[in-house]
């Protein structure tokens, strides 16, 4: 009886295994879907002379943030940015920090997007590089892309990891410079500050 159930289990595994694997979306596909959506939102016509322009920008930014939240793993991003400091944070503090940090990043990007034109953006996706899972069991992949805007070709690589059956971005490398590494170097200097102070500083910047 036991033997039979073991055999049955393996047969099930062999049959079901490939189906499960196929059902999962490839990192490149996830990335492409989200980035395309973002570009559509950005290219939606907006009448700046309208008196409700501010409200419209706010609404657009809210929609962009929802998209970004689907694509980015903000907790990993915050962990990467804080580096060693992350270990000093309690679980609640980690969540609070990750939450505020995601809004800070979004805010700084929204500020840059003002008045830019995204009509001519084209993105070329290059071959995804899968990395062997580490001890934590998390699989990672690098998706190198080339972004062409106003005739300038910029290499942008997305580092993705598998989280809850979907691929999420945890770092963006633009022209060989990593975003997480950049924030980590900044946070390294505040090793003396308490987690409460770091969160308070972050919230101050958001105002």
């Amino acid at each position: 009886m036991f033997k039979r159930s073991v055999v049955l289990f393996f047969v099930l595994l062999m049959v079901a295994g490939p189906i499960i694997v196929q059902a999962k979306e490839a990192p490149e596909a996830v990335l492409k879907r989200c980035v395309d959506d973002v570009i559509v939102i950005l290219n939606a016509p907006m009448d700046v002379a309208d008196d409700q322009a501010d409200a419209r920008v706010a609404e657009r930014n809210r929609r962009l943030f929802v998209k970004a939240d689907q694509l980015f793993d903000f907790r990993s991003l915050a962990m990467g940015a804080l580096g060693r400091n992350w270990r000093r944070f309690s679980n609640d503090q980690k969540t609070e920090f990750a939450n505020s940090f995601s809004h800070l990043i979004a805010q700084s990007y929204f500020a840059r997007m003002e008045g830019q034109d995204f009509e001519s953006v084209s993105i070329e996706y290059l071959k995804t590089e899968f990395l062997a899972p580490t001890r934590s069991g998390i699989e990672r992949a690098d998706v190198p892309t080339e972004l062409i805007h106003n005739g300038v070709k910029t290499p942008v690589a997305y580092r993705m990891l598998e989280r809850e059956d979907s691929w999420k971005v945890y770092d963006v490398i633009i022209e060989g410079v990593s975003m997480v590494s950049n924030y980590r170097e900044q946070y390294r200097n505040s090793f003396n500050d308490s987690p409460e102070k770091l969160i308070a500083e972050l919230k101050e910047k958001l105002k």
């Binding site: 580096g83 590494s181 980590r184 170097e185």
Partner: peptide, 21 residues
Amino acid sequence: LSPGGAEFDLEPGATIFNTES
């Protein structure tokens, strides 16, 4: 090397996945 915050440590023979050229 810039220290990270993950709870797992780098084992001998492991590969560093975050690199900057």
